[in-house]
Simulated assay, not measured.
Amino acid sequence: MEFDAIVLAGGGSTRFGGVDKAMLVLDGVSLLDRVLAATAGAVSTVVVGPVRTTSRDVSWTVEDPPSGGPVAGLAAGLQHGTAPVVVVVSCDLPWITAADVTTLVEGLAEHDGHGLRDTDGREQQLATAYRRTALEAAIQQVGDPRDKSVRRTLARLDLSWTDPTHAGDDVDTWADLDG
């Protein structure tokens, strides 16, 4: 099934002291490039955040207003691509692979979305394949997407989840890089 990818990479990285988390390097590859490798099968890929040098060509956009949060980033990202399925990933998922992305897309079945759980069992809305129409409707329903909660915005969607997996572990602190 064809899919587009939206990669959220516009956060302030406050827990990293303002260091650009997307450009942190793990095993010789930036976190952003690791996610871009995992989503390489997308028909189109848009990165929501400042333009950076990456390992492959992608489209770029920023949320409006800038620093408006992940829901605003999703709204901006949805302006790109036309595939019926959208894989949404944040740039801080260094262990996600192309096989994991395939699992997300193939796991949609009749659901609005199918996402990863991290190793602690937490549902990762920003590591999920969504039906474009369902995601667009959820974001439209909140009105101004600035500073809206991702969990609240997507709460009405019918989502299914993988078993806990390391692929769903995100990097929020320096210690998380030891994963």
Rank of each mutant, 00 (worst) to 15 (best):
A72T: 02
A5P: 07
I139S: 08
A9W: 01
G41A: 13
K21H: 11
D147E: 06
A129W: 02
V58L: 03
R56A: 09
A129E: 03
L26Y: 08
L157W: 04
D176S: 15
P66K: 11
H80I: 09
I6A: 04
R152T: 14
W174A: 15
D163K: 12
D163V: 11
Q125M: 00
D120A: 15
S59E: 12
F3W: 13
T103W: 06
R15L: 14
E2H: 12
H111T: 09
T45R: 11
P70H: 06
Y130P: 08
G121L: 12
A37M: 05
T162E: 06
D118I: 10
Q79K: 14
V47Q: 06
A127Q: 02
E2M: 11
G121W: 10
V46Y: 07
R117K: 15
D27K: 14
T102H: 13
H166K: 14
R156F: 00
T97V: 05
V101A: 11
G81E: 09
D172K: 15
D144G: 02
S13G: 15
L36V: 05
L31A: 06
V105H: 07
H80S: 10
D33Y: 03
L157H: 03
R156N: 13
R34A: 07
R146F: 00
G143S: 10
L126N: 00
L8K: 02
V171R: 10
R34E: 07
H166T: 13
D33K: 04
V29T: 15
V47F: 07
G69F: 03
